[in-house]
Design a protein around this nucleic acid. Sequence first.
DNA 1: TTTGAAATATGACCTTTGTCATTTTTTGAT
DNA 2: ATCAAAAAATGACAAAGGTCATATTTCAAA
Lengths: 234, 234
Amino acid sequence: MHPSPSTCQQCAQRFNSVFCKAREEHVEVINDKKVCNIYKKGQQLFNEGANPFGVFCINDGKVKLSHQGDDGKEHIIRLLKAGDVLGYRALLSGDRYSASAVALEETQVCFIPKDVFIKVLQHDAGMAFEMMKVLSDELHRSEIKLTHLAQKPIRERLAETLLFIKETYGFEADGITLAVKLSREEIANLVGTATESTIRLLSEFKKDGMIELEGKKIQILKPKQLLATANLQD
Amino acid sequence: MHPSPSTCQQCAQRFNSVFCKAREEHVEVINDKKVCNIYKKGQQLFNEGANPFGVFCINDGKVKLSHQGDDGKEHIIRLLKAGDVLGYRALLSGDRYSASAVALEETQVCFIPKDVFIKVLQHDAGMAFEMMKVLSDELHRSEIKLTHLAQKPIRERLAETLLFIKETYGFEADGITLAVKLSREEIANLVGTATESTIRLLSEFKKDGMIELEGKKIQILKPKQLLATANLQD
DNA sequence: TTTGAAATATGACCTTTGTCATTTTTTGAT
DNA sequence: ATCAAAAAATGACAAAGGTCATATTTCAAA
């Protein structure tokens, strides 16, 4: 875990986030009103159904964002890392949270109160534009995922998910081990399938030599073959 | 088809769209630069892969927005009606179009050039905020759909889709006939399933007395029972 | 009206995926 | 290090849904 920055101005994520284009004066306002916090693995940042009071800005760590299906089954809709902001969707739509956010490991988060965030958005065209970009990108990702979920078999979606995890969190120092520990169930909830199917297919991928499994550690041995398995055109 | 308005200021959709909060002066600029057009049923407004040169604003009519799956199979991601704007996603992300837009019937559309739209967004906080709201709502819808696609059986998703079509386009004057004609294949591509499955389930719904089928005409006889079949919690 | 192509409908069948049961392994707490 | 609980792995089976073949209907053009 990196040391917590004392101010937003010094924050390592500043130019790596939606605030990258925010004017200096606005960053100051945000810095004055922010509240930082550390969440342990498994702790909730917010819960589906609750009223949003602001947005969260990840300084270090990893967070999953998930919906509760009608039958209580989790569906993970996003994986977040340092520099990512979350909780804006409900805030901007004026809704309650439609998803829950849970730390996947010890995570440093700054909380920015609703009125501060909104006011800055309304007075800083650069940041407002950046926010629209974030929303557009998220929407794009979500729509692509919709099409794949509707049209691709689980095998392809699992391969795609493993590559997505790699894109999001990267590797450990060894260059092949995924830098996040997810349970098989969580991977299944990311793919949109049953846990057993995920386990079975991971075993197959291992048998095919594409990956190595060691507890929750997953190593990507043959990224190209995995990419071919994912059968991506985009 | 309603008469085409001569100006944006007089447009029936003005306060029913993302421009509802735009300042008068900006509406004037848009009005000066807009180009209106009529698309016949089946005509394309834009095509996946093309570069966006602006946004489209529907004045009257109906449009479907769809992705091309890797195997060429269509997946409909949105249904649009008067007052809706489309083409903004690619524009804001700085991408090419990731979806194609096709008129479902004769449709009046105004085209607003990229630089005009962007400039207004940058100078009009009210409209920028409204745009973020539209994006957030779209994102929300998309994420809910993801969870349902991952977790719900086709029967429930088809019932949900029929209700969604009703919400979007409403009924004919008789109060029970869906005010849009979609092929079985299009409904399937909206649900995310095979055409045959959709046909089979529509027949079942008819047998159960929930709907009536007459060519492409679909009548909703028992909306409550359909809602129960959709099994929605949200 | 006729007619031919496209859309719809339906049956048979097969593949994929989910569910349940059981065993094995891992993990974390003592 | 030991142990209990949770997670992972695996097999057997069932169910859902897709595919293919074919019949029927609809609809628009001649």
